[in-house]
Simulated assay, not measured.
Amino acid sequence: MRNTKYWMSLLVACLLTGSVSFAGEWIDLFNGKDLTHWENPYDWGKAEIVDGEIHLTTEKSKWFLATKKEYSDFIFEAEVKMPEGPSNSGFLFRSHKSKNKMFGYQAEVDPSSRNWSGGLYDEGRRKWFISPNRDHAASKEEQLQSIAEFTKRVGTSFKRDDWNKYRIECRGDHIKISVNGVTTTDIHDQVDSKGYIALQHHGEDGQIYRFRNIRIMDLADE
């Protein structure tokens, strides 16, 4: 009885102090104040906190702000707002990190007229391989069909001049991406089962990429 009371007291204390987390609960990856969960693996690029948002800028080229921790099965949510003019971004997930380099799955943020936001790009490897399949289709007809099916799914879900909420779900080889509540990608792929999450700046000098409300539900131990 005495041991039971001790462990219950310890559990309550941990919960009150926020010192432990459990699979299936939301964890803030950004608290609006600091970049505790994040690091820049590049020799360039700048991440600043402005009014509770992460602002990414660069004077050189494309870079990614990455999580310090790897994740396998999870639900990830974040909001992104793109600058006016030419720009492109994305959320890497289950990705790989080394000095001045990241590659892997990327949920596309595309404010151009093409509107491929919510598509699945394979950064540094297969490029557009499935959703939509522009680079690995067996024929031109198959390519055009894949693009048409994707743009029909996406519709007008992405808001060019507003905040956009992304949701990425990974369970085993099942990958699902949603933009503002609209499912844009729902596929199975086995190339990567674990890796880092990262926020992309595409490299345009002077452009500010803004991110907020970033959180994750780790499902690895469920």
Rank of each mutant, 00 (worst) to 15 (best):
T151S: 13
F64N: 13
R2P: 00
S117T: 15
K60Y: 10
T185P: 03
D218F: 03
A23S: 15
C170P: 10
S9V: 03
W26R: 03
E53L: 06
K194P: 11
G104N: 01
S72P: 11
R167D: 10
K81T: 07
V50W: 02
A198V: 00
G52T: 05
I27A: 05
I54P: 03
E39K: 14
S9G: 07
A137C: 05
M1A: 14
S72I: 09
A220W: 08
F103Y: 13
E108W: 02
R2G: 04
P83K: 07
V182H: 06
S89F: 09
S89W: 11
Y42G: 00
E222D: 11
L16H: 03
C170E: 08
K159L: 15
H55Y: 00
Y209S: 00
N88D: 11
E53N: 15
S131Q: 05
R167S: 13
K101A: 07
K127T: 11
E222P: 00
I130W: 01
T185A: 04
D218P: 09
W63Y: 14
R215N: 04
T57F: 10
E39S: 12
A13S: 15
D110Y: 04
R171Y: 08
P132N: 11
V182Y: 02
I175V: 11
T151D: 05
G90H: 08
M217T: 01
G119M: 05
T156M: 00
N164T: 09
N88T: 04
V109R: 02
R114K: 13
R160P: 02
E70K: 15
W7S: 13
H202M: 10
D73V: 07
F158P: 12
F64Y: 10
E169R: 08
R212L: 07
R171N: 06
G104Q: 01
I49Q: 03
D221E: 12
L15Q: 14
W26I: 05
S89C: 09
T67I: 06
D189I: 03
A148S: 15
A148V: 06
I27L: 09
Y42I: 01
S146R: 11
Y209K: 03
W163G: 10
H174G: 07
S139G: 05
M8G: 13
N100D: 15
F76Y: 15
L219H: 03
T183I: 15
M217L: 14
R212C: 06
F129G: 06
D122Y: 07
W128N: 10
K194A: 07
I187C: 08
F211K: 01
E108G: 02
D189L: 04
W26S: 03
W26N: 02
A137K: 04
G45H: 07
M82E: 06
Y209C: 01
M8N: 12
S113V: 04
K140E: 10
S98L: 01
K46M: 04
H201R: 00
H188S: 08
F129T: 00
D135P: 05
E204W: 13
N88Y: 02
Y166P: 11
G155S: 09
S117C: 10
I75G: 00
D43A: 12
N133K: 10
S89N: 09
I197K: 07
L219F: 01
V20L: 14
N115F: 03
T156H: 05
E53Q: 13
I49V: 15
E48L: 15
E222M: 13
L16N: 00
D162Y: 06
E222C: 12
I54G: 05
K176C: 06
K60I: 14
F150A: 02
S139C: 09
R153C: 04
E39R: 11
I197C: 07
V12C: 08
